[in-house]
């Protein structure tokens, strides 16, 4: 089919065109994958806000009569080797990972977008230096650079972990934004803006940025999933968060040695929590990808 024919196919009557934006939103909202993803993510978000009210026991409450006891009426998800309630600790562990993942991704997205916009628009030396640095950072596995940075910095504070993960995410986002901007900057509406004496910040943020938002949004959701992945793994490896605070990765790290004795519940439930949170974010990014046709 010729290009013309295709454009004719996608061309629509005025009324149809008017509804296209609404339709696209509807397409997102109606998408089954999106709905499932949102429901699961919404569930975890609610738990992260109201976890304290829902959890039947405190994070450090111990019951020495019930140590490593399987799921029962009293302890739905059983208890761990310290006699702590697995169910409560899973619920209370939500907030930390959700807050950390969102902050790290937001940080990385903002910095990465700024760098990508500038590199793609100015090109030249700035772009060259940025690209070399981005390439260098991408040549270090995220987990290893995070481990190194966290080991080098004093203490295991979640704030530092957020900054480190945000930092290692900037290259990915920067690269995505740069690629999109390179294409956009060639388009004639940018020349048109220059021909009405617009200043560079206006061109970058008011003209180009709105047009590269879809890939940024998708990249944000992809990175969010990977932030959950990275934070969980770091805390599993004993880095990134304080000991003792309820968090899924540490729970698994503490409990997995016992799975060979078939004490699976202290490990399996937080593992399920990590999996479902990460998958929910992925389902959302997947459906956005489909609707934006990226």
């Amino acid at each position: 089919m010729s290009d013309k024919e295709i454009s004719a196919l996608t061309a629509m009557s005025n009324e149809e065109r008017r509804t296209i934006r609404r339709e696209r939103m509807q397409l997102v909202v109606r998408n089954k994958t999106f709905r499932v993803g949102c429901s699961i993510l919404g569930f975890w978000l609610l738990l992260s806000i109201f976890g304290d009210l829902i959890a039947p026991r405190g994070a450090s409450d111990q019951d020495f009569e019930f140590v490593s006891v399987g799921p029962s009426f009293k302890y739905w998800f059983g208890t761990d080797a310290n006699g702590q309630d697995v169910f409560s600790r899973v619920i209370l562990g939500t907030r930390l990972i959700v807050v950390m993942a969102f902050s790290a991704t937001t940080l990385g997205t903002i910095v990465g977008t700024a760098i990508g916009l500038a590199a793609g628009y100015f090109k030249g030396t700035f772009d060259m230096i940025t690209m070399r640095l981005i390439e260098a950072i991408s040549a270090i596995p995220v987990l290893i650079i995070a481990l190194l940075a966290i080991a080098a910095l004093e203490g295991r504070s979640p704030t530092l972990t957020v900054i480190v993960i945000g930092f290692v995410f900037t290259p990915n986002i920067g690269r995505t934004v740069r690629a999109a901007v390179l294409g956009e900057a060639e388009l004639e509406y940018v020349a048109a803006a220059r021909l009405r004496t617009e200043r560079t910040p206006h061109i970058l943020f008011r003209e180009i940025l709105p047009n590269v938002l879809p890939p940024i949004i998708v990249e944000f959701t992809v990175r969010l999933g990977y932030a959950i992945f990275a934070i969980a793994t770091l805390s599993f490896l004993g880095a990134g968060v304080e000991y003792g605070s309820p968090n899924w990765g540490s729970q698994i790290a503490e409990g997995w040695g016992n799975i060979y004795s078939n004490i699976w519940w202290p490990t399996a439930f937080p593992a399920l929590a990590i999996a479902s949170l990460a998958v929910s974010v992925n389902l959302i990014s997947d459906s956005l990808l489909e609707v934006f046709e990226l």
Partner: peptide
């Protein structure tokens, strides 16, 4: 000195309204 480009799809910012596209030019120029 102004220009009318060949391809209006690329020459008009697809995120801006018609009023904004023309109005902003009047405002600046």
């Amino acid at each position: 000195m102004q220009i009318v480009f060949q391809n209006p799809d690329q020459a008009l910012n697809r995120r801006h309204s018609v009023t904004r596209i023309v109005g902003r030019a009047v405002e600046r120029l």
